[in-house]
Amino acid sequence: MLAIVVRNSGLLRGLFTDDHLHDLGKLLLGFSCFWIYIWFSQYMLIWYTNMPEETSYYLLRTSGPWGPIMVVNILLNWVVPFFMCPFR
C-alpha cells in the first residue's frame, strides 16, 4: 500500500514503474503461500500426532471468540493476496 501511495504522490516519478508493483505483488503472493504452507504443516502435524499438550493450542484458536479471528486471518493472509495478485 505504501508503494502505491509513494508512486501516486510523484516522489519517485520515472523510478517506480508498473513492473515494480507487479514484482511486489508476486513477492506478496510468494510470502502468502509460504505462510499458509507453514501454518497448514504445523496444523497437520499437530492433528496427526494427536498430542493433548499440542492440540490445546488449536482448540483454543478454533473455538469461542478466536474462531472468527482465525478465519479472518486465513482470508486476509492467503485468500485475498492469492486472488488479488494479477497474473500476466
Rank of each mutant, 00 (worst) to 15 (best):
W78Q: 01
L21P: 03
W66D: 08
L76C: 10
K26M: 14
L28Y: 07
R88G: 12
V72H: 08
C85P: 00
N50I: 09
A3G: 00
M1T: 08
G64Q: 05
W35A: 05
L11E: 11
F83Y: 15
G64M: 01
F34I: 08
P52A: 00
R61L: 13
G25M: 06
S63C: 08
Y57E: 10
E53D: 14
L2Q: 08
L29C: 05
W78S: 04
F83N: 00
S56M: 13
M51G: 06
L45E: 10
S63H: 10
N73Q: 15
L12N: 08
H22N: 14
A3F: 13
D19Y: 12
W78A: 02
I38Q: 09
V5S: 13
R7I: 04
L27E: 15
S32V: 00
A3H: 08
F82L: 07
G10W: 03
S56A: 13
L76R: 05
F31P: 00
V79I: 04
M51T: 15
Y57R: 11
L27M: 06
P52H: 05
H20P: 01
R61G: 05
S63Q: 12
C85D: 02
N77G: 10
L15S: 12
L21Y: 01
N77M: 06
L28T: 15
R88I: 06
G10E: 01
T55V: 11
T62E: 07
V5H: 06
S56G: 08
I38D: 06
L2Y: 13
R7H: 06
G14D: 03
L12K: 09
T62F: 02
L12F: 13
L24N: 07
C85A: 06
S56H: 11
C33D: 10
L76E: 03
F82R: 05
L15D: 11
P86A: 01
H22W: 15
I38L: 07
C33R: 11
K26N: 14
N77R: 04
I36M: 00
N8S: 13
P86S: 03
L60H: 14
W78H: 07
L29T: 05
G30W: 03
G64K: 05
R7F: 04
L12H: 09
S32K: 02
L21N: 04
F82W: 07
F82Y: 05
V79Y: 02
L11N: 11
R61C: 07
P68S: 01
I46D: 10
D23S: 10
M1H: 15
G10N: 01
L2R: 09
N50F: 12
L59V: 12
T55G: 00
Y37A: 15
F31C: 10
V71Q: 09
L2E: 11
F83G: 00
I46A: 08
L11Y: 15
M1G: 09
I46W: 08
D18C: 04
W78G: 00
C85G: 02
V79W: 02
Q42A: 12
A3V: 07
I36F: 03
S63P: 03
Y43Q: 07
R13L: 09
C33A: 14
R7P: 01
G30Y: 01
D18Y: 15
T55E: 07
